[in-house]
């Protein structure tokens, strides 16, 4: 479903991703992990066409998407959430989710201006689909509240509902569990599994290892921009290189700090 081929991204002199290759199969839940600064978010931003890769190809359903603009992704079937919450704060919860239905509304400016019956009809349909997504994540109690007033847990759910409203084939979740407590994080795992049951492919960037190891079919590990491992959660947990990447960095830190003192 999604193929990343030899993707390199440099920002000035900094190499964020270096010749990364992997693929995500239809109906899978795939996790992308790695220490801070490994280039996970950069990879996500390229897959959602926020910016193009410096080199390499990104192929979604036989279509090269690396040169497309951001707003072309949702119609293709790729939708995402943001680690640093990109909520429409001054809009209500349901209005936020209705933006997810935007690409399904064909009403142009003229029809909207004259409020033709077809425009009203579409508005009602968009509202109903938005409600479905809100019920799915369990935000129905706050649906008419200003999104800016929500607690963090609810904001994460709102991001998820909005991304689902697009009706994506591939859903990108960028640290959807960041800042959530254990219970919220568990609920989120269940939600993600429910989403997959609907036939949606899920690709997650995550720091929460419990979540990654419990739900992912496949895990890809990045370290300093390069892919160092790929496999099932069990394989990854036993992989020496991965352990060094995570723990080794800390040990090195300790050695350095020890040396300095």
């Amino acid at each position: 479903m999604l193929q990343v081929k030899n993707v390199t991204k440099t920002f000035g002199g900094v190499v964020a991703n270096k010749e990364v290759n992997f693929s995500v199969g239809k109906g899978e839940i795939v996790g992308l992990i790695g220490p801070n600064g490994a280039g996970k978010s950069t990879m996500f931003n390229m897959i959602s066409a926020i910016f193009p890769p410096t080199k390499g190809e990104i192929i979604f359903r036989d279509l090269n998407i690396e040169k497309k603009s951001t707003n072309e992704m949702a119609p293709l079937g790729i939708s995402r959430t943001f680690q640093n919450l990109q909520i429409f704060k001054r809009m209500t919860v349901v209005e936020n989710v209705m933006i997810g239905r935007h690409i399904r509304t064909k009403t142009g400016m003229l029809k909207a201006a004259l409020k033709l019956p077809s425009a009203k009809d579409e508005e009602r349909k968009a509202y109903e689909s938005a409600l479905e997504c809100i019920h799915f994540v369990g935000l129905e109690k706050v649906l008419d509240q200003q999104a800016g007033n929500l607690a963090l847990g609810d904001l994460r759910l709102l991001e998820l509902a909005r991304a689902l409203a697009v009706n994506p084939e591939l859903l990108l979740l960028d640290e959807i569990a960041a800042g959530l407590n254990q219970k919220e994080s568990k609920d989120m795992s269940k939600l993600i599994q429910k989403i997959r049951e609907q036939g949606i492919t899920v690709f997650v960037v995550e720091h929460d290892m419990d979540l990654v190891m419990s739900i992912c079919d496949k895990v890809i590990v990045l370290d300093q921009g390069e892919k160092i491992a790929e496999g099932t959660p069990q394989e990854i947990q036993g992989n020496q290189q991965v352990i060094t990447a995570y723990l080794g960095a800390e040990e090195m830190e300790e050695v350095k700090q020890g040396g300095g003192a």
Binding site: N71, R80, Q86, N96, I99, H102, A112, L114, R162
Partner: peptide, 28 residues
């Protein structure tokens, strides 16, 4: 009518987060 249609909503969303708006397919 325009302000209270999905067009107006899309325009308001651009104000709060242009990046999220375009990720949802809004052609700003």
């Amino acid at each position: 009518n325009i302000v209270h249609s999905h067009v107006g909503r899309a325009l308001r969303s651009i104000h709060d987060s242009e990046i999220a708006a375009s990720a949802m397919g809004v052609n700003t």
